[in-house]
């Protein structure tokens, strides 16, 4: 049964970072959190998104400075390489903490 203090915790849901909360962006940030970096092709294929869809999510995270997007030459081929920033890392960690509290309040 949800108590009053549990209800106060549930109010955290209003404070959730919607940028992180979106499933595709959450997946992208989670993968980048775990590794050093990966390119557009790898991430798009692993996430099963179309190029356009992936680009949209990538741009939103880049605008928020949660990820770095760099054009690199790897083996003389141009690649778009993504990595998570410190802000992105902190945002994901904060999101996880908030979700843990919310789910705990639900019992």
């Amino acid at each position: 049964m949800t108590t009053k203090s549990d209800f106060d915790v549930l109010l955290i849901a209003g404070d959730i970072d919607k940028l992180v909360h979106e499933p595709a962006r959450l997946m992208l940030l989670s993968i980048l959190y775990t590794i050093d970096s990966a390119d557009f092709v790898f991430l798009q294929k692993q996430m099963g998104l179309t190029r356009g869809n992936f680009s949209t999510h990538m741009s939103k995270l880049e605008e928020a400075h949660y990820i770095n997007v760099k054009k690199e030459f790897v083996d003389r081929k141009p690649m778009t390489v993504l990595s998570i920033t410190d802000e992105g890392r902190a945002a994901l960690e904060k999101y996880r903490g908030q979700m843990k509290k919310i789910l705990a309040a639900l019992g």
């Binding site: 390119d39 092709v41 790898f42 790897v74």
Partner: peptide, 11 residues
């Protein structure tokens, strides 16, 4: 790499 793309687990 041309098929799967690039991933770096560490530097």
């Amino acid at each position: 790499r041309p098929r799967m793309g690039l991933i770096r687990f560490e530097s």
